[in-house]
Design a protein around this nucleic acid. Structure first.
Lengths: 190, 190
DNA sequence: GTCTATATCGAGATAGAC
DNA sequence: GTCTATCTCGATATAGAC
């Protein structure tokens, strides 16, 4: 693997584990097995490298989510597939984690991949819910945008609960709870 | 206000804004208008002061939540009151924020107030849901623990979505979505 | 492209005077 | 109790040799 590639992968891991503020250029270089000069040759600095790393993680998340969402037949199956995907809750979300970082939120450049990811994800889910309502699978009053936001929030919040507890369990409970709440939104038999 | 008190309040604000890793003793001292020696006289160091600050924020969150939860008459009213409480979503949760911090999660001392807060909150909500099921307000199959975890997760995840978007809106959508999902869990008329 | 040298600054803390 | 002095280390680069 080339040096530039190793730097991006190292940054991805460290941003995941320690966030933007908690990740130093030196730590990235050490993990990548690259020197100072090497990093500053390939990237302008820490923010530039971080953006490259975050874009890649965002692309990965999107591909994984799309795989779940495209799989099921009904809206409920798709949403459940997304919610119940295997996740290591204690590690958290590579993308969502960045939203809690003050330096990321303060910078247009750094926030952009995060914003784009969640815009896409909630929009994709809202479309699925809207289809479910239109097809008569889900009850007519169900708001697609609000429901989509709640689904994505349960996953992101589940990470918080798991890390607070030091255990996977609260995450699993939260997503199971969300699936059960959604199951009760089926349209009444005509 | 005494110096010790000002240090705790300054730490509370900075931990909220910047997290544990992103908060320096120097920044705390400057905001408190206290010198180096003064801080190290009252507290053993950064972790010690942070624990004091986090305990206070945990106590505050608990009191606020209890106020919402004790207010409503039915389980749905109580849960909705908790979910719909006015919050500045862009600032995030003083307590939940700490769960994303690697140094907090790595330390038994620092994690304890966070864990305790969410244990209490999910337990309190689970009791409310269980009461609602027992009284016939909510459908019999509804799992109290899973539902409680989902409710708390929606709020914590809502903060992530809001900060990612740079807007309050996704937070409001998520909690409204959760309230709507809960409304459909009413037990069918006997 | 990668290396080493150098620079500035802040983090996090200790020591001891007042 | 609070202050200033001092210490060590890492963060975040820039400069210039190889």
């Amino acid at each position: 693997m080339e040096t530039s590639e190793r730097l991006i992968e190292s940054a991805r891991e460290l941003l995941w584990e320690r966030g933007y503020v908690g990740t130093s250029p030196k730590a990235i270089q050490e993990r990548a097995g690259a020197g100072q000069g090497s990093m500053y040759h390939h990237f302008r600095g820490k923010p530039d490298l971080a953006v490259a790393a975050m874009r890649r993680s965002a692309e990965q998340l999107r591909a994984q989510a799309e795989a779940q969402l495209a799989g099921g037949r009904t809206a409920q199956e798709k949403a459940a597939a997304y919610l119940l995907r295997e996740r290591d809750a204690l590690r958290g979300c590579r993308v969502g984690r960045m939203a809690m970082d003050p330096d990321v939120i303060a910078s247009e450049q750094l926030r952009e991949p995060v914003q784009e990811t969640f815009d896409w994800l909630t929009g994709r889910l809202a479309g699925i819910v809207a289809d479910g309502v239109a097809s008569g699978e889900l009850r007519p009053g169900l708001d697609p945008d609000d429901t989509a936001a709640a689904i994505v929030a349960v996953v992101q919040g589940g990470y918080v609960l798991a890390r607070a507890a030091g255990s996977q369990e609260p995450f699993d409970r939260a997503v199971r709870g969300a699936v059960a709440l959604l199951a009760a939104q089926a349209a009444p038999d005509a």
